[in-house]
Amino acid sequence: MNKMSLKVERIHKDAILPRSAHSGDAGLDLYSVENIVITPGESALIKTGIKIELPEQTEAQVRPRSGLALKFGITVLNTPGTIDEGYRGEVGVILINHSKNSFTVEKGMKIAQMVVKPVWKVDIIEVEKLSSSERAEGGFGSTGLR
Rank of each mutant, 00 (worst) to 15 (best):
M1T: 10
M1F: 13
V8G: 06
R10E: 09
R10G: 02
R10V: 09
K13E: 15
K13P: 06
D14Q: 04
A15D: 08
I16Y: 03
I16G: 00
R19M: 14
A21H: 09
L28N: 10
L28P: 01
D29T: 09
L30A: 02
E34P: 05
I36L: 02
V37Q: 02
I38S: 03
T39E: 15
P40S: 01
E42T: 06
E42F: 06
A44C: 05
L45S: 10
K47I: 06
T48Y: 06
I52H: 04
I52E: 04
E56S: 15
Q61G: 03
Q61M: 13
R63A: 02
R63D: 08
R65T: 04
L68K: 02
K71T: 07
F72P: 02
G73I: 07
G73R: 03
T75A: 10
T75H: 04
V76Q: 02
P80R: 08
G81E: 08
I83A: 07
D84M: 11
G86D: 14
Y87H: 11
Y87Q: 03
Y87R: 08
R88F: 13
G89K: 09
G89Q: 09
V93L: 07
H98P: 00
S99Y: 10
S102V: 02
F103Y: 12
F103A: 03
G108D: 07
G108S: 06
M109D: 00
K110I: 02
A112I: 01
Q113N: 01
K117W: 05
P118A: 13
D123K: 12
I124S: 10
I124F: 13
I124Y: 14
I124V: 15
V127E: 07
E128Y: 07
S133T: 15
R135W: 13
E137N: 07
G141R: 07
G141L: 08
